[in-house]
Design a protein around this nucleic acid. Structure first.
Length: 293
DNA sequence: AAACTTTTCAACCGCCAAATT
DNA sequence: GAATTTGGCGGTTGAAAAGTT
């Protein structure tokens, strides 16, 4: 015998919520907090399914929701995160405070997807493509493999970058340093976790030379401590996109990492490796004023 | 001004993993 | 350990709004 059913299916209201219903839901949650969505409708005097109440609250009524149109910066961030995460809307929205997964999904499907297509990019793989006979053409690759490859490549480069910095004892307080390890914090945050926890069958076979469990714990601590800073910064994703503008698939990542370590600029004053180029050039013209809505 | 088309986005649906009994 | 529900997620739908003819 399991638990009681989530709600009586009969006599429940569906469709758009009325202001009165919204008031009841907000008032109830204000007084009793969220949780136990099953009993909430009855206790709040609503003829709605608990699931419907939860959706209304999380997507519309929550006080921390940022309403209004997306800023160009937010749109850039969504595009960059989508290149890495794919259609993981909840993971993407966790990096945009005040925005819901539903809102981001709608933004993608109604604006960004079309814009990328118009710019000649496949909105699934983010690869440059051309339109022939109304269909996309370009190098074949599985979207999930593409996103995993981008993750792996970006992560390895970020780890190599981090190692280089520690070897050189670069001052940790510099802005560029915090920019460069943003990816590592993202990787060790809940977003990266969705990838780390993927079934091994989906992961490219590889060796992770810097990913000992002890270092993860340390980085995770930093990640939590700096979560606020992370969320307000877009430099990591800018870097990720930049570092993955090539379409090459990483075949031997430990070797690549070694190469990256050895490929350190001979001139120690050259800090260009920290990633400060105009990363949006991956999508040339995408954010020209004329291309914005 | 009316008819038609396209776009937007809130809400629903079904699936799945985790939790509960 | 099986059966069942819950909560969360991504995909899809359809009514309303906006745009076009």
């Amino acid at each position: 015998m399991g638990r009681a059913p989530c709600c009586e299916k009969k006599g429940l209201k569906k469709g758009p919520w009325t202001p009165e219903e919204d008031d009841k839901l907000v008032e109830y949650i204000k007084n009793h907090g969220q949780g136990n969505w099953r009993s909430l409708p009855k206790l709040a005097g609503l003829l709605r399914c608990g699931k419907s109440c939860r959706l209304r609250w999380t997507n519309y009524l929550r006080p921390d929701i940022k309403r209004g149109p997306f800023t160009p910066e937010e749109e850039k961030l969504v595009i960059q995160l989508h290149a890495i995460l794919g259609n993981r809307w909840a993971a993407i929205s966790s990096q945009l405070p005040g925005r819901t997964d539903n809102e981001i999904k709608n933004l993608w499907n109604t604006h960004l997807k079309k814009r990328l297509l118009l710019m000649g990019f496949d909105p699934i793989t983010h690869e440059s493509v051309s339109l022939q006979n109304g269909s996309l053409t370009g190098p074949p690759s599985s979207p999930s493999t593409r996103h995993m490859t981008q993750w792996e490549s970006a992560r390895l480069e970020a780890e190599a970058r981090s190692s280089k910095e520690s070897i050189l004892s670069l001052p940790s307080s510099t802005t560029k340093h915090s920019e460069s390890d943003f990816f590592l914090r993202l990787w060790n945050s809940e977003v990266g976790e969705t990838f780390r926890n993927l079934d091994n069958r989906e992961k490219p076979a590889s060796v992770y030379p810097f990913s000992s469990s002890s270092s993860e714990t340390t980085i995770e601590t930093v990640a939590r401590k700096d979560e606020k800073e992370c969320r307000s910064s877009k430099s990591c994703t800018e870097y990720m996109i930049c570092s993955n503008s090539s379409n090459e698939v990483v075949e031997d990542e430990s070797e690549l990492t070694l190469e990256l370590l050895l490929d350190f600029p001979s001139n120690n004053n050259d800090m260009s490796f920290l990633g400060h180029s105009d990363c949006y050039t991956l999508y040339p013209g995408l954010y020209n004023e004329t291309s914005l809505n």
